[in-house]
Design a binder for these strands. Structure first.
Lengths: 213, 213
DNA sequence: AAACATTTTAATCAAATGATTAAAATTAAA
DNA sequence: TTTAATTTTAATCATTTGATTAAAATGTTT
């Protein structure tokens, strides 16, 4: 059996083990605080194998970062660009998918935003993001509804901030909020799932046009 | 003139120069990505002076972190515990103060939340926070209003998440949102100030009791 | 089975980095 | 002014850490 591609057993390939371990450790600690020895230990492999398969810590990081950015954006992009649904149909789907993704990857947002704070140029390379969000079907529907007076007027960027804030902020701030509220891990996850129902309602309230005089 | 305390001139004491430089660099890059040489260069002092005045990188970090947590929490705490104002009077004051503070320290939230993701125990030492927020005058007013039916029912923790999300998230996500929206630095700051007026309105919408049947 | 290729391991290297030291420079006290 | 204390500097140390190497182990091909 050749090494990487055809590995049907429960045992992952060495390469895949390293990648998964790298994702876990990088996401939790960021690039600088992660030692290649941490990744090797998490993966249960010899340190030299990291360089054998991925050349360098830097290269491995770039791979994980690219995948992470892609995951972070794609869970928005697919919903945002569905031509077959209305503005208000998209919202609960977006919220549901995004909260599911973040529940599985709760350390992802801080990882991305922390690295981006150190080096904003990491974003520039992912030029697709601007197009995929701000020129999406969803945002066009939003602006059309605003022009028709079906929703309260709001600058698109504020709308994006608010929607993402509702969804992402509780994950970003979880270590702080869990302490503030004295909330254990499992109860916190419950709260996140509760928000799947509530966030679409809150967004609706924000967008409700004020009654005509 | 003795060294630290009585320094009235425009020239800061060496100790203060190091502290301010440490704050800037730690806030931007976090503990692990910060080299003591970075701090020394930012401060314009000899590397050895960092250890002379602060013993170690670790000790200097603990000092900055304690001050940062304090700043982050105190800008909430003072407003939240003002006995002389109503629930709805507190909200615009909170929003205004917090956005001002974050405009001056835009890298503060990611710094705190990033370090907290690496080591959640950093929070535990600051036990005051739970008391100061969840048992605050503001939260008691919030719950009293909910019981009287003056506002729509919402779990306090969700309310805190939403309010903080409105305020803090745009700063946390600024490197990403600025790319998405193609927004320059100064224009982004303008947006943050715009939100001072809008956030209290949005919060009011969320809290507006649904009409009785 | 023999020869070859690939993967894994333990040992080691070199550079980066936090910290220390001893001497020099500066300031304060006598 | 002399002496003592404090602050600053350049050089150096010791540890950590990313990376490499050569040999051993494992797998594949003929």
């Amino acid at each position: 059996m050749s090494n990487q591609s055809e590995n049907i057993e429960n045992e992952l390939s060495t390469e895949e083990k390293i990648k998964q371990a790298a994702r876990v450790v990088f996401h939790k600690k960021g690039f600088a605080a992660t030692r290649t020895r941490d990744i090797a230990e998490e993966a249960g492999i010899n340190l030299a194998l990291l360089n054998y398969y991925f050349r360098s810590k830097e290269k491995l990081f770039q791979l994980i970062m690219a995948e992470s950015l892609s995951a972070f954006i794609k869970s928005i992009a697919t919903v945002f660009n569905d031509e077959s649904t209305t503005l208000y149909e998209k919202i609960p789907v977006l919220v549901d998918k995004y909260i599911d993704m973040l529940t599985k990857n709760p350390t992802l947002p801080i990882f991305i935003l922390g690295e981006l704070q150190q080096n904003p140029d990491l974003m520039v390379e992912q030029f697709s993001i601007k197009q995929v969000i701000m020129q999406s079907v969803f945002m066009r529907q939003f602006q059309a509804a605003a022009e028709k007076g079906e929703i309260a007027p709001m600058q698109p960027i504020h709308f994006v901030m608010n929607v993402m804030g509702f969804i992402v902020f509780p994950f970003v701030a979880s270590p702080m909020l869990r302490t503030i509220g004295d909330i254990p891990q499992d109860k916190y996850i419950e709260l996140m799932h509760e928000r799947k129902k509530m966030i679409p309602e809150w967004i609706r309230l924000l967008l409700k046009p004020s009654p005509q005089v």
